[in-house]
Every structure is written in C-alpha cells, then in structure tokens.
Design a protein around this nucleic acid. Structure first.
Lengths: 112, 112
DNA sequence: CGGTATATGTAGGCAGACAACATGTGAATC
DNA sequence: GATTCACATGTTGTCTGCCTACATATACCG
C-alpha cells in the first residue's frame, strides 16, 4: 500500500480501535495489524504522536499503569471521541462512495 | 469532506476519468463533480499540476487543440497509464478492505 | 463595457504521516 | 553474565503533495 494513502484516515482507525475497550499504544498497533489482515503496519512514529494529538483534542483520555514492570499509557475514548468516531464512519462512507462513483465500472459508456 | 482525504488517491481518480476517452483538464474537473454526485470539487491548482505529473510519469499524453477560439490541452491514457489504472483499482480495493476491517462492525466483541 | 463561463497555469504554504533515532525493562538464549 | 529479542514509549526532522491564492486570456451575453 502506498504510504500516503492513510492521510486523513488515521484518526478514524485509532478511534475505531479504541471503540468499546481501552488499549495502550503498542497494543493498538498490533490490533490494527490483526484487524487489517496484516495490511496496516503503522510505525510508532505515526501512532504515538497521533494519540497525543487525539488526547489534546479531547477525543481520548489516557492513564499510566505498570504491568510486569513495564510502563503503559492506556487510552480510552471520551464522549467526544465516540461522537467523533461516528462522524468519521459517516465521512468514510461518503468518501468511498465518491471515489467508487468515479473508479467503479470501467470505461465510460457515454463516450460519444 | 475533509480536504486531505484524497491524499494518495488523486492519480487513481484522474486515470479513471480518462479511461476510454480523452478529456481536457477543465472537463475532467466537471466529470469528477458529476460522477461523485458533487462530493468532489477539485480546484484547478490540484488538477493541472497533477496532470503534468502524470504526463511526466508517462501515464498520460496530451496534445493542444483549439475549440471555439479557446486553447485546450487534451489528455488521454497511455498503455502504461492503463496498466497503472488497473493497479490503482487493485490498490483501492486492498486499501478499503484494510480500513473497513478496522472500522466496520462497531465495538469489539472480544473485549474481556 | 462589464460580468460570467470557459480554460490553463504558477507560487507558496502547510498538515501530517513517516524514517530514523533514543531509551528502558523483562525474558529467553547461549 | 552477556547477548538478543519482544515489549513499550517517545522525539526530531523530513518530504510528499494537496490546497489557497493569484495570474492570464478568450468567448458570450447583456
């Protein structure tokens, strides 16, 4: 997959991954690999700053915990984050509908 | 639609618009509006440089014509462009499959 | 003559994903 | 006891590439 394809859709992925559960950054990356069938392998330099950005925007909240001597910052959706996720899902449907309206169906029948 | 969502998909849109017909830049913009139900309204500053880029890459070829006293640069797909379009369609399917594997289906049932 | 649609283009800005780097623990391997 | 791997978090700097704003020119209508 070309790298820049994710542009503008990363927030949706992160919010959806946190829908209904709390996870730390490393586990989010693994969950995305699993759920995408291996297609999404996001580097930490992409995910961690994005999570901080979402927290600054009030869409997720985080707290530290220690598991097996290792520090974890665990994230969960806020109410605003749940609303944002719903909006992202709607935006995704509109986006794909627009693109597929162009891409779908091969050559143009109305060619004069 | 958020502006940056198109990142990495613009080439596919342009190639698909030229599939099976030749068009000039302005007509491509109108065709994209029509085919997307008005969702895609690309500015000229996006489309014209992108077409030049595609031409440099050998995916489209262009020629000037004059229609009603107005200059038009008409584009068409090259063989390489047709192959690239096929590749873009495949990449699009893989991309949407990956995203929808994450976005689809709401909260996670396997939450412990 | 002015405004709108048609038609093409450039210059500069800027968001945001990525590569590379930096740090530290626990467990297994040798 | 040293090395290496999996786990876990983060920063810095870069670069792609779409967008905004601007600039230009003709035809047509009023």
């Amino acid at each position: 997959m070309k790298p820049d394809a994710l542009r503008g859709h990363l927030d949706a992925l992160l919010l959806a991954t946190l829908d209904g559960r709390q996870l730390h950054g490393y586990a989010i990356i693994e969950a995305l690999q699993l759920r995408s069938g291996g297609a999404l392998d996001l580097p930490t330099g992409t995910v961690y700053p994005a999570l901080r950005r979402l927290e600054t925007a009030g869409l997720v909240s985080s707290e530290w915990s220690t598991v097996g001597g290792r520090q974890r910052r665990t994230y969960r959706l806020t109410k605003a984050g749940q609303r944002a996720l719903a909006a992202e899902r709607t935006a995704w449907r509109e986006f794909t509908a627009a693109i597929e309206g162009v891409l779908g169906g091969g050559p143009w029948p109305e060619q004069a």
